[in-house]
């Protein structure tokens, strides 16, 4: 669930207000306000679209978390989602080259589970 906006990092662009699909934020004076945290679905889209890496979403989607901002600032989590997406370099050729592995890796996992089930079911008969 949305946990914190770092006022000192926020550039006041309000893009999180615009792009949040569930209307969690209201525009504020310097930084946006977390107005409706109960509507947050923990989708990390605000982090993805925040060019200032000023937003932290807590990992628990069911409950608000009390966080220590300075611990989070030092954690390396800020901006991680945006960096991993390569969100700032959409036209860079090759940055989605691993994507084709999703299907085969899913299939491999499923096949492993199916083989294990057959073996397990047989051994317990």
């Amino acid at each position: 669930m949305i946990a914190h906006i770092f006022d000192d990092l926020c550039n006041g662009c309000n893009s999180c207000v615009t792009i949040c699909p569930t209307h969690v934020f209201d525009a504020g004076n310097s930084a946006p306000v977390i107005a409706r945290p109960d509507q947050c679905q923990t989708c990390y889209m605000c982090e993805l679209y925040c060019v200032s890496d000023a937003i932290y979403v807590g990992p628990d989607s069911h409950a608000a978390e009390i966080i220590d901002p300075e611990t989070i600032r030092a954690s390396g989590h800020l901006g991680r989602v945006r960096h991993d997406h390569g969100w700032d370099r959409p036209d860079e050729a090759g940055h989605l080259d691993h994507y084709r592995l999703l299907g085969p890796l899913l299939q491999e996992g499923g096949e492993t589970a199916a083989q294990r089930y057959r073996a397990l079911a047989t051994s317990r008969e």
Partner: peptide, 25 residues
């Protein structure tokens, strides 16, 4: 433990939203 061995190093690259709920916990 049975996940494909190729997966852990590239999961963040394929599905970047999936690791944070674990890493942050």
């Amino acid at each position: 433990i049975d996940a494909p061995v190729e997966l852990p190093p590239i999961l963040h690259d394929i599905q970047p939203f999936t690791p944070p709920p674990f890493v942050r916990k």
